[in-house]
Design a protein around this nucleic acid. Structure first.
Ligand SMILES: [Mn+2]
Ligand SMILES: [Mn+2]
Ligand SMILES: [Mn+2]
Ligand SMILES: [Mn+2]
Lengths: 141, 141
DNA sequence: TGCAAAGTGAAGCCATGGCTATATGGTTTC
DNA sequence: GAAACCATATAGCCATGGCTTCACTTTGCA
């Protein structure tokens, strides 16, 4: 590999990490909304905000972005609901989160650290890596 | 655990992930500058920019932040240098990056995916998790 | 030595994701 | 039904991290 293509590759890695990061907020919110609806029958902005550890205007802005990206719907003073696409994302994210935690635990990471780190790590686990994680967990069984 | 403290814990996880993310840029740039100095004897803003996959004003702004945080020094139209603190960060980051890649490889992740994902994952690996990773690699060894 | 190219800096734009403060719509309770 | 309380919306602030454009040094080469 030439020095030039090495530079290109490195830049691509940083770009991929930036892209993954820009999806992180959408992923966490869709999962959170789905959780709230499952547990309480509805997802109110105030509950979303408390759960995410942000103020309610911040949560409202995030919901606006979810709607703009076709992941959620809501009407003024009513709860937030996920579109099919949003629900699909929530499901994917939930599964991936669990797999990441399970892999960390299998590697001997303490449970509390595993949960803490997984919340950030999950967004940078590609499909390829996720598949490898699943294989690993099956072998470990 | 009460429902209330579960909410608090969850919010803390998101906060930790946000904090980790805010360190990511500093970590990647210090490592990059250290690399460039090792390989070419100096770290110029243009080279940093190309390597990071951003425009030069973006890299210059990042360098300004590094200086503000005491990690780097530079004078107008001269290269960028790391402080002792910056160099220490670069070294930590480099070691951690390699460990993350090694763990992924040991789990059966293809090499290219391992390198791609590691660039984002590394910033969310806590000291505790890193220690567990090192133990795992030693056992695997 | 001088000029062109390359590198650097400065200004100003945008989107994102935090925040506070304030206004307004809904709900509950008396 | 009105008051009080709660939830939601809106406006506006800040920092970050992208970008383009333009101006100014520095450097290298004819
Ligand atoms: Mn997360
Ligand atoms: Mn998660
Ligand atoms: Mn990185
Ligand atoms: Mn790295």
């Amino acid at each position: 590999m030439t020095e030039d293509s090495a530079q290109t590759d490195q830049a691509e890695r940083f770009n991929q990490a930036r892209t993954a990061q820009s999806m992180a907020l959408l992923e966490d919110y869709t999962e959170m909304i789905d959780d709230l609806i499952s547990e309480h029958g509805e997802a109110r902005v105030t509950d979303i905000a408390r759960q995410m550890g942000v103020t309610h205007p911040t949560a409202a802005k995030a919901v606006a972005r979810l709607k703009r990206e076709g992941l959620a719907v809501s009407r003024p003073y009513r709860g937030v609901f996920l579109t099919d696409e949003g629900a699909a994302m929530a499901e994917r994210v939930r599964v991936r989160h669990r797999i990441v935690v399970d892999v960390l635990l299998a590697l001997g990471v303490p449970a509390d650290a595993a949960e803490l780190d997984a919340e950030g790590l999950e967004h940078h686990v590609s499909e390829t890596t996720l598949a490898a994680f699943e294989d690993f967990l099956r072998r470990q069984g």
